[in-house]
Design a protein around this nucleic acid. Structure first.
Lengths: 205, 205
DNA sequence: TGACAAACGGAAACTATCTCCATATTCTGT
DNA sequence: ACAGAATATGGAGATAGTTTCCGTTTGTCA
């Protein structure tokens, strides 16, 4: 459905500049910035902005999709370089770190896409597929139980995201992940290695 | 907190008309209706609308507070006419029914109040107090265990609200309530003391 | 390099928001 | 019951934000 269109070089460049600026601004929570002002900040004319993203929602959607793509890419990379179980753990912890580092972005996107939630649902599905892959690999390894689906993990992640307002959010979120990972681990013997290590994606500024 | 201001009769009337219309329109999901058009629909001038509710958010906030007040009133009424445990059960089931019947309203309010979430937090606190009362009465009756706070119930409700997109939402939500009520009911063997589980997730059957 | 299509920018047209005040309604004291 | 004070109203017009349109520029391909 994401039809590939040959995009002219300058168009591509502008598009990327707009997305980058949007990400930055959304992250700062200024989602109601004037549209023409936004174009100016991104260094393009309003016309260009409108050609690429006809509405505020379209812009949000594009940023969101980029976000999902980044996450999925990260997962693929982890899966290629780490043992399955570790890849899953690192990915989930990384998700929390990502949510933590980009609170404003998440809130802004959620607000802007509240109406057009089709794209949101689609992204969430994409993410679920990725988690499914990570888990399936770990199950194949025999390190993770096979009787719990990715849906459960998704619900937990969703719940974590929805509870952002809680004062001790980060710690609680990490707690949920720890519980889940422990619960998922196939326990042939009680080997509880220190799972506290905070493996972020190493992207945060 | 709710300072009583003597409001002139016509002002009161207009205010109520605006709120009623807002509730109706929000419920239908049209939260981006033009402001002047909205005034016309409610049968008042724009000036009047602006005097009562300076911003869209203020309007949403007022509707939200009304909603909370309705809910709390219902709880008080149940508490006065039913045995404590039954009052609690009826209230919780009623909440689900309410959420179900007014999906659009909930979504709209959530969207509009994403920024000004102070009122949201306050309303949620008010609701939590109400649930606390219901539970406390049931605990005094000896029908409900005393070692689990209202916070747990609130989290579950919150989780239910956040999962509205799930295809089988209503059934699953009812399931969660059933589980909770069963879990809350004091068993013949007595309370489970010193329980530590505060992270609940993946509550689906 | 020239020809053509694709993309650009930003002025201008358009649309929505909000303010202001002359007029209308309600309230209060006698 | 009524006059005067206080409060509220509506909507025209000012302000602010959005979107289109098109002459110009830039990139692509032969």
């Amino acid at each position: 459905m994401t039809a590939d269109k040959p995009l002219r070089a300058d168009a591509q460049r502008n598009r990327e500049a707009l997305l980058a600026k949007a990400r930055e601004i959304f992250d700062a929570g200024d989602f109601d910035l004037r549209f023409d002002e936004f174009a100016r900040l991104a260094g393009v004319g309003v016309g260009t902005l409108y050609r690429h993203f006809p509405t505020r929602e379209a812009l949000a959607e594009a940023v969101y999709q980029g976000e999902i793509a980044t996450l999925c890419g990260r997962a693929r990379q982890l899966q290629a370089t780490l043992p399955a179980e570790e890849a899953l753990a690192t990915f989930l912890r990384g998700m929390i770190g990502h949510m933590d580092a980009h609170q404003g972005l998440a809130r802004t996107l959620a607000t802007l896409m509240a109406t057009r939630s089709e794209a949101l649902a689609e992204g969430s599905q994409t993410l679920e597929r990725t988690v499914t892959h990570l888990m399936a690999a770990a199950v194949r390894d025999g390190t993770v139980r096979g009787d719990v689906g990715a849906g459960a993990v998704m619900m937990a992640l969703h719940g974590i995201g929805a509870a952002r307002h809680r004062p001790d959010w980060r710690a609680e979120a990490d707690g949920v992940i720890t519980l889940m990972l422990d619960g998922l681990r196939r326990t042939s013997s009680g080997d509880h290695q220190g799972q506290r290590a905070q493996k972020n994606f190493g992207e945060e500024k």
